[in-house]
Design a binder for these strands. Structure first.
Lengths: 192, 192
DNA sequence: TTGACGGTAAACAGATCGGTATAGTACGAC
DNA sequence: GTCGTACTATACCGATCTGTTTACCGTCAA
């Protein structure tokens, strides 16, 4: 992640609007002029603060990732202490509320990857980090349940997780995330 | 799908090159000048044949979908007659060979959706059709096994399927598709 | 009080975007 | 031998792309 050096008010406004613009319209479809206009900022300021559009894209993904991790951990690690098995399934509850509230167009990182084929693009590490974090988090949760073959099980849950996000955004399966959670429960219980 | 009216040689060349260009670089990143140059065709010819870039995008997705369906059915319905249970799992074998041969950057339709947020874009039906076909195909295969709750099971397999494609393209899980197939087998056998 | 900092305003580069226009060539069918 | 079709070549359109530049205005701290 990043070390969030203090942003000026104008820079903060830019990062707020790009989160909406990039996600809703796609990265290529949003030009710097639109960003500046929407944030009520001049392009001069924009380039003084960030240096390039690519840098803004990177920050967009890093900030979204941070919000996403906060969302997940707030639900999975909520006090009241659910058991390990329940915590695994809470991951899918977190996904469900995230999809409804912030993710109707699917995973922002998968979408960004589609638009940024260049492996050397400065925003690529942010994409890889988000996915690795989800996988690692699932691995830890699964390990805590004492299930057999936790690495492999976590990988399966990860794929259900990503697939549920795709299915929900495509609106081709009703109750996609709930269905994924049921399948996850079945796989989990079979390994306990 | 489309009724493939005869394409002129130049038009055929255009559709061949855009399949590569759009998939590898993304739709927005490929301009009509690049397409024309790469196909060895003038822009005049390009617009005489297709009318707009959007129409080319639609044809790109429809043709990729056709190739994909051919690939799947050739493997799942190969003579030699596998049983229904085995045919369900053959879907994942088809995905595995497709990923290796043609899909390193993930599902072209998911990627296209990321770049085409406009619900009225002429290429959107092609995206919806491909996903609906996969889901329907899985439903039929599952129904043939006589499994309980075939609709729900097919939805779970669909999500494993899409998630495997994401995981494989992100290269975050080793042997993603094989892992998804194992999970699918487990879910399937539990419902028989 | 001076000068660095964050900012506005607005013009400007050079390239590329999707799409159109004009002019002309090669070729097969009737 | 003429007509229609498919095509090349090239220039152009207005808009938009990322990015730069010049000039100026506050505020606040040393």
């Amino acid at each position: 992640m990043t070390e969030q050096q203090a942003m000026t008010p104008a820079a903060e406004r830019v990062l707020e609007v790009v989160e909406q613009l990039f996600y809703d319209k796609g990265i290529h479809a949003v030009g710097v002029d639109m960003i500046a206009a929407e944030a009520g900022v001049t392009k001069k300021t924009l380039y003084d603060r960030f240096g390039s559009k690519d840098a803004i894209v990177r920050l967009y993904l890093e900030r979204r990732d941070a919000r996403w991790r906060d969302h997940v951990t707030a639900i999975v690690e909520q006090p009241g202490r659910f058991g390990p098995r329940r915590r695994v399934l809470l991951m899918f509850d977190a996904l469900e509320s995230w999809m409804a509230a912030e993710n109707p167009r699917g995973c922002a990182f998968v979408n960004a990857l589609a638009e940024l084929p260049d492996p050397d693009h400065p925003a690529r590490p942010a994409i890889a980090d988000e996915k690795q974090w989800v996988l690692d988090y699932l691995r830890q949760l699964v390990r805590d349940t004492g299930a057999r073959n936790p690495r492999k099980l976590a990988a399966s849950l990860f794929m259900l997780f990503e697939g549920a996000a795709v299915a929900a955004s495509l609106d081709v399966v009703a109750g996609a995330v709930a269905g994924a959670r049921d399948a996850a429960r079945q796989l989990l219980d079979a390994a306990l």
